[in-house]
Amino acid sequence: MSGAPTGVEGAARGLAGWLSLAAAPTFAVMAVLTAVSGGGGMEMMCSPGAGSPLSGMVPMYLLMSAFHSPAWLRLAFGR
């Protein structure tokens, strides 16, 4: 199965590309919304305590956004 991708394969790659671009800004928006709203009940449930600056939902969303940013970097710098 070498050669150009079929219509389904091409569509799947295109969708995967758009999904990879959607992840980083989605997590960044979630971090901002969580910070503005004060975290809510999930903040208490997911936070082990005040011992670590990386505890809580906001830092988690920011880290997830950073880990998903290579798709944007590839787009910006043309691979």
Rank of each mutant, 00 (worst) to 15 (best):
M1E: 12
M1G: 14
S2H: 11
S2A: 11
S2F: 12
G3C: 03
G3P: 08
G3K: 05
A4K: 10
A4D: 11
P5G: 05
T6L: 14
V8R: 15
V8I: 13
V8H: 14
E9N: 01
E9M: 01
E9L: 12
G10E: 06
G10K: 08
A11G: 08
A11P: 07
A11V: 03
A11W: 14
R13P: 00
R13S: 13
G14I: 05
G14E: 09
A16I: 01
G17S: 05
W18Y: 12
W18D: 01
L19G: 06
L19T: 01
S20K: 07
S20T: 00
S20F: 08
S20A: 12
L21H: 12
A22D: 01
A23V: 08
A23G: 01
A23F: 14
A24S: 10
A24R: 00
P25A: 04
T26M: 15
T26D: 02
T26A: 15
A28F: 13
A28Y: 14
M30D: 04
M30Q: 05
M30S: 12
M30G: 10
A31Y: 15
V32S: 09
L33M: 05
L33H: 02
L33D: 01
L33N: 05
L33Y: 01
T34R: 12
T34W: 08
T34E: 09
A35T: 00
A35E: 06
A35Y: 12
V36R: 15
V36W: 15
S37C: 11
S37P: 00
S37W: 12
G38C: 13
G39N: 13
G39D: 15
G39C: 10
G40T: 07
G40W: 13
G41Q: 01
G41F: 02
G41D: 06
M42C: 06
M42R: 05
E43N: 09
E43I: 04
E43S: 10
E43R: 07
E43M: 10
M44C: 03
M45P: 02
M45T: 11
M45I: 10
C46K: 02
S47P: 05
S47D: 13
S47V: 00
P48Q: 02
P48H: 03
P48V: 03
A50P: 14
A50L: 15
A50D: 15
A50T: 09
G51H: 11
G51F: 13
G51C: 10
G51T: 08
S52K: 04
S52P: 05
S52R: 09
S52V: 00
S52H: 09
P53Y: 13
P53M: 08
L54T: 10
S55H: 08
G56H: 04
G56T: 02
G56F: 12
M57D: 00
M57W: 02
V58N: 07
V58R: 03
P59K: 04
P59S: 07
M60F: 14
M60Q: 09
Y61H: 11
Y61W: 15
L62Q: 08
L63P: 06
M64K: 00
S65I: 03
F67P: 01
F67S: 07
F67E: 04
H68A: 13
S69T: 15
P70K: 04
A71W: 11
A71K: 04
A71Q: 11
W72T: 05
W72I: 07
R74Y: 14
R74A: 12
L75M: 10
L75V: 00
A76M: 10
A76C: 03
A76N: 02
A76T: 04
A76Y: 03
F77N: 01
F77D: 03
G78S: 04
R79E: 14
R79S: 13
